[in-house]
Design a protein around this nucleic acid. Structure first.
Lengths: 300, 300
DNA sequence: TAAAAATACTCCATAGGTATTTTAT
DNA sequence: ATAAAATACCTATGGAGTATTTTTA
């Protein structure tokens, strides 16, 4: 049976595509690493790497092998962490990721609460879009992410936290939706301002506005909700704002009127996602409750 | 990082609850195994086993650890098999499981076809009920199972093969359903004969007969479809027979009348299930097509 | 006290280091 | 010609064996 050492060397080799540098990363000499790779190839009876002067290429089988090797290494690393912490995820380091449309509004309240409740926990933060978060979660660079559900991924588990309803932000005095209730169908593509591509909030908003003609949307999107509200404040259009953002601004935004939607109010579901192989559910549950409590607190 | 050797020793120790016998299984001496376990405990900073005169007990953390260790070992073993076979599942050994309500009817046709199509494949068969099959699949004792879908299991993938409609088997000359079309709602609990508990076919039949009063069902069920048809033939009641079974009997059963159900015909979905970590999809697909073709052939 | 695990020590296999050769561009 | 990997050879770490002690029911 292969050793974890061989898997580690092989992973490093696949990343560096260079025996010498891979060996350096593994803190061994090049022949030591070469020998282990050779041994792996002998054990598997398969050529994993194409050696050539200009670096190294993996064979197709090698690509498959490294993907599986990384899976095994991640599972093993997760096991070690879990057991070392007596199954308590909330001690030691937690690498937490969050969407840019969530992090700035939830974390300022959450992090102090977490520090109070789990004093032995050290949180490393990362803010990225859904796709990046999920990739990093999968390959073990993150432990837990806060994002919008649903997430369909076989290696991940999720836990819904709360629904975050949308408001329609219109310029103050614009006269739109004078009844104070917005209707998704009445939003016009020419007016709609959105985040740039890749933000899931953009897709969610478009989902709500099924009938909007995508071809008539403005080409360039904003990169943050703050920018977006500035645009709205200056009369350049309307946009969707999640309640989470609105709350963090104290319930109102200068020169912008926030119009609630008609029932059923469109919303995004905020939730946690993590690798199946990482933590005990009890820990995620504890954290989930803290987050929910944390959000409820803001209602005061 | 832990070595695979340590994981193997630990797994053996957890199974034998005895250092000496675990060591024997691993073909090393007791002190060698003791040292590796100690090393593991040191690396993890956790006590994994309670040593006592009368054998060994795992601590709660140890239980968690061994479960995870087995997961890692299975993933690694699957990786080795896949790569060794160049991703071709259908060479070497395939440990195949099937439900007792499928195996006797499908396999006599399938196995010769498989032998013809995949000459380098050696098939090891196991026949069990759904629960057992899934457990053995998960812990690596089986590679692939044929059963009734749906199967909801995070570590497993599935592939539907075909729908297998039910017939109602009634005693010849009983006068039931003279129109030649059965209606699920007209089946009476007093008449209904079923397989014993644990057979998924039993549950599926009860699902079709939503209105049947479960309390009035006979206490003891048959252990095979053959027994069941004997009971029906002797006028003791009626039962559900899957088409797969009927076909294998040449389309008719002595002294039993087979009544098709009204549309939509109730059916069970037969499918394949396997660990996500094991094979390439292409191989499962190849086998799936063979099975489907194999069943279609019988229609002649 | 007796069975089982831990410890002490010794040995050897194998991983790793150094020096060198081979290979491919 | 030269950078990179393979090979050869030596060293040393650590895994495993044998003998023995310690533990505990």
């Amino acid at each position: 049976m292969l050793s974890t050492r061989q898997l580690r060397y092989f992973d490093a080799l696949a990343r560096h595509r260079h025996f010498g540098r891979a060996a350096q990363e593994c803190a061994v000499t090049q022949p030591a690493l070469s020998m282990q790779i050779k041994e792996m190839e002998d054990l598997l009876g398969v050529r994993l790497v194409e050696r050539s002067r200009a670096g190294v290429r993996l064979t197709p089988i090698g690509e498959e092998a490294v993907a599986r090797a990384r899976g095994v290494l991640t599972a093993l690393a997760d096991m070690e962490r879990s057991i070392r912490a007596h199954g308590r995820l909330l001690e030691g380091q937690l690498r937490l990721g969050a969407l840019p449309t969530i992090a700035p509004y939830l974390l300022p309240r959450l992090l102090p609460e977490m520090a109070k409740r789990f004093p032995d926990l050290e949180v490393a933060l990362r803010e990225s879009q859904t796709e990046t978060l999920l990739a990093e979660l999968e390959d073990g660079a993150l432990d837990l992410v806060i994002l919008a559900l649903p997430v369909e991924h076989p290696a991940l588990e999720t836990r819904a936290l709360f629904d975050d309803p949308f408001y329609l932000a219109v310029p103050e005095g614009s006269g739109l939706f004078p009844g104070g209730i917005a209707h998704a169908d009445a939003v016009c593509a020419d007016d709609l301002l959105l985040l740039e591509d890749g933000h899931c909030l953009r897709d969610q908003a478009l989902n709500v506005c099924q009938q909007v003609d995508r071809r008539r949307l403005r080409r360039f999107g904003a990169s943050s909700l703050s920018t977006l509200t500035q645009l709205v404040a200056n009369g350049l259009g309307v946009t969707f704002l999640p309640e989470l953002h609105v709350r963090s601004e104290g319930g109102r935004v200068p020169r912008v009127r926030l119009v609630p939607f008609a029932e059923p109010r469109p919303a995004r579901t905020i939730g946690l996602a993590w690798r199946r192989t990482l933590p005990f559910k009890a820990d995620v549950e504890a954290l989930a409750r803290l987050i929910i409590a944390c959000r409820a607190r803001e209602e005061e």
